[in-house]
Amino acid sequence: MNATVHGLDPSVTITTLRSKDLLGIADLTPVEINLVLDTADAMKEIASRPIKKVPALRGKTVVNLFFEPSTRTRTSFEIAEKRLSADTLNIAIATSSVVKGETLADTAMNLEAMRPDMIVLRHSSSGACHLLSRICRSAIINAGDGMHEHPTQALLDAFTIRERKKQLKGLKVAIVGDLLHSRVLRSNILLLTKMGANVWVCGPPTLMPTEIARFGVTATSSVDEAVRDADVIMMLRIQLERMEGAFFPSLREYFNVFGMTEARMHLARPDVMIMHPGPMNRGVEIASEVADGPYSVILDQVANGVAVRMAVLYLLAGGAEHEEAA
């Protein structure tokens, strides 16, 4: 596998990530992002084998520590870990001692005492992974922290785009929806702008982060403007409880103003890709005809998620260097 994993662009000379953790896209360089994506290329092939397992993480212990409900991300990480032969265990909030009032720091220190190699953390508080990173020697992988980052989602999105469009540079990517509360948005903005894409973000002003222009994107509340000639349209989930915060009047009105319909989609380039990180609210941010239509790559994103997470796990475990040592 080494040969394939390292069959990189000759200009790329790195084979591992600089940090012990993956806390966010903010910490990655474009070269590192390419390394992850190239490694994921090699990992994706494993899914097509009759025996979908390689020994890369044999003897490594990975803890999936999930303080928020998650089906897709947790399953994706677990499959990725198992395909790399890691020993995995899942801790969900309901079964942990957090219900007894233990702090995150104490939970982390107790886990750490059992010497895991990696901790995959999903938490509702922004920065929870940074707290863990300061406490733990294990590699921390951010599987989504509050409204901050969801780096593996952005990496799998980039992988999916690159698969179709060959490169990210110069593409017009429109991201539409609840920008304010979205960690997927923050990670995607960081990644796409680092890789030279032309990022447009669109949503109601009530759901737009402060000083969004400083993120290097073009912001608009006109969907038509955002999606016109777009190569990629990324829809973000609208959380149903946002109505109560008076961010918008009703789901019906939201769909009328911001929902992705076929008519709006046709303003984009003819080879547009429609993406969604899930879970979708059909008929709220996206019409079913679009979600299930020929331009949708939503299920490709899910499939690629496993390969990208395998790449991240592999690289943080030390990549080829670790394998050779073993």
């Binding site: 402060t210 000083e211 993120f215």
Partner: peptide
């Protein structure tokens, strides 16, 4: 409420 809170998701 400003750039840093927005980028840190606070």
């Amino acid at each position: 409420e400003g750039f840093y809170a927005a980028s840190l998701g606070l």
